[in-house]
Amino acid sequence: MNPTTPTRKGVTCRNLVKDYGSGESRVRALRGVDVEIAPGELTLLVGPSGCGKTTLISILAGTLDATSGDFSVLGVNLQRLSKPAKADFRARNVGFVFQQFNLLPFLTVAENVAVPLIINGSSRATATTLATEILHAVELGDRTQSFPSQLSGGQQQRVAIARALVHQPRLLVADEPTSAVDARTGHAIMELIRQMALQPDRVAVVVTHDARVFGFGDRIITLEDGRVASSKRGERSFTHDPLAPA
């Protein structure tokens, strides 16, 4: 596969700026980010604390507005969308994996995974069936009726990954998905993200400052002080070709 095929839209940013606050207390988190993120690759976003990684993926995922600059995500100019349209965009196209998992404690594992489908208008029955299927794929088929609190951190993150992918989104964003789990579990999670998320037309961006997992990236973009310091091909030291048929 060729990640530069123009029909496959990824993410493009030109001179992206983000300020938090205003006046005296203004903080410029992004100072003109220029970046291309191609579909079909696992992109790692790395850099020191406070350099703007979270800010950047929040903007790309449509949960945060940029202050200025041009960017398009999957060929859509998010800045032009109204609030509800942006919510719909997220619901349909974005899968989220959070550092703290953010599973809903009052729903079972299967019900949690069903939530993105429910937000997209599926009935509970359909949603739960699909959710159970994908839970088998992340090897949690026997825990569908458990509550998140009954699972280990690694298991919870696997549930979160299942939830992020159940509705087949074209953009997967993950913010520090491995920092709340131990090294071995971290590897397993990155492995899972590679296996499950990588598809020719899917953009996958993982924020991490966990050097132990850098080897999973196809491309490693380094941010420093609100700017892109480098964008390199990854070493891909951990896995064989993720896109080879299983």
Binding site: A61, T63, K83, P84, A87, D88, F89, R90, A91, R92, V94, F96, F98, N102, L104, P105, V115, P116, I119, N120
Partner: peptide, 16 residues
């Protein structure tokens, strides 16, 4: 609020 935030991020509209 955290759970509402999660739902909101995942694309649940305000009126829902």
């Amino acid at each position: 609020l955290k759970h509402f935030g999660t739902l909101k991020a995942m694309g649940m509209r305000d009126r829902r």
